[in-house]
């Protein structure tokens, strides 16, 4: 059975890779099967985890009747299918948007604004506050300056209440350069990621399937 699974996986892997040459029937077959299976898989997973696991089991076994409120909101969401009363579906949507926004504001504001600003406040020439002057390695000193200047000029670039002219414009230019360098690093990492996936597949084809790799 395991051998059958391996051969099947290899069939689909090669089918998808064949797209590199050009679109063909094999690729189309693999793609359609993949789309169909993933839709089915998600349906089954969500049904068993949400409707059965989180709702039905908890109602019947643990008698957690608060869940009925959530379930009725869920039902309202489905009313979109009946156009005359479809507007009711906006209520649960508002609930979800409101609750998520409330949670996100605190989380994002604390983690991505407060903590980040706090950690940008550092003496430029030391490893951390309280350490003697020039205690950091040249590498960290450059790092500190890049972080402080990069954050500041990045903010300048995204400041919309003043024209980018003169010194302010110059700082904005440094800001956008910093952002572009970050994008470059990010792109490099993405190439690395995609290559890793390809390596993983090739290891499967030549190792697990064909057994050519030791």
């Amino acid at each position: 059975m395991e051998i059958f699974g391996t051969w099947l996986a290899a069939f689909f892997t090669l089918g998808i890779i064949s797209f590199l040459y050009r679109d063909n029937a094999w690729y189309k077959l693999c793609e359609s099967i993949f789309v169909g299976i993933s839709a089915g898989y998600w349906f089954v997973t969500l049904f068993w985890d949400n409707i059965h696991g989180l709702f039905w089991e908890r109602i019947t076994e643990r008698h957690d009747y608060w869940l009925l409120i959530g379930a009725s909101l869920g039902l309202m969401m489905l009313l979109r299918l009946i156009p005359p009363i479809g507007w009711i579906s906006r209520w649960p949507l508002s609930f979800v948007v409101g609750a998520t926004a409330g949670l996100y504001i605190i989380n994002y504001f604390a983690s991505n604004v407060m903590v980040q600003v706090e950690n940008t406040l550092m003496p430029l020439f030391s490893a951390k506050f309280g350490d003697p002057l020039f205690s950091a390695s040249p590498y960290s000193i450059v790092g500190n300056i890049v972080v402080a200047a990069g954050t500041f000029t990045g903010l300048v670039y995204f400041f919309f209440s003043k024209e980018h002219k003169g010194a302010f414009g110059g700082m904005a230019k440094i800001g956008i350069w910093t952002i572009m360098i970050t994008f470059g690093a990010s792109f490099g990492y993405t190439v690395m990621s995609r290559m890793s996936l390809l390596i993983g597949r090739m290891d499967f084809i030549f190792g697990d399937w064909l057994g050519l790799i030791r």
């Binding site: 604004v113 600003v117 940008t120 406040l121 550092m122 003496p123 430029l124 020439f125 030391s126 506050f129 350490d131 003697p132 002057l133 402080a148 954050t151 500041f152 903010l155 300048v156 995204f158 400041f159 919309f160 209440s161």
Partner: peptide, 27 residues
């Protein structure tokens, strides 16, 4: 957009003042 600019301005001022204060205090 304007309101967020106020937030950004606050962050910029804090970063400048904070980094300068930390560096001078250290030195």
């Amino acid at each position: 957009l304007k309101g967020q600019d106020v937030g950004k301005l606050l962050a910029m001022v804090v970063i400048i003042v904070g980094v300068v204060a930390a560096t001078i205090s250290q030195s």
